[in-house]
Amino acid sequence: MEKIQVEICLGTTCFVMGSSHLQELIELIPKRYNNKVEVSGKPCLGLCSQDCEYSQAPYVKVNNEVVSQATVEKVLKVIEGIIGNNEK
């Protein structure tokens, strides 16, 4: 099965608006999901500049789903959802 890809935006806007805290996921995810999920910090994903929406930052991409105002809990929930679907 293909690995779930988690990309944390570490561009300036996302970092300042809270993705600094999401770096926690870089340690947490491999521990929790072994090799089902791959996580990485990325330079600006360009999502904030589309319509100047820094109010919705920080952004995380899980596969191709964009998670806005992302928190550790929110991202984990999306991952759980995908894993749940895959196992059905």
């Binding site: 570490l10 561009g11 300036t12 806007t13 970092f15 300042v16 330079p43 600006c44 500049s49 820094y54």
Partner: peptide
């Protein structure tokens, strides 16, 4: 730090670049 961060965002400065 918050204010400096806001300045970077407002001026669209991408630190990683």
């Amino acid at each position: 730090f918050e204010e400096l961060g806001a300045l970077f965002v407002a001026r669209k400065i991408e630190i990683l670049n």
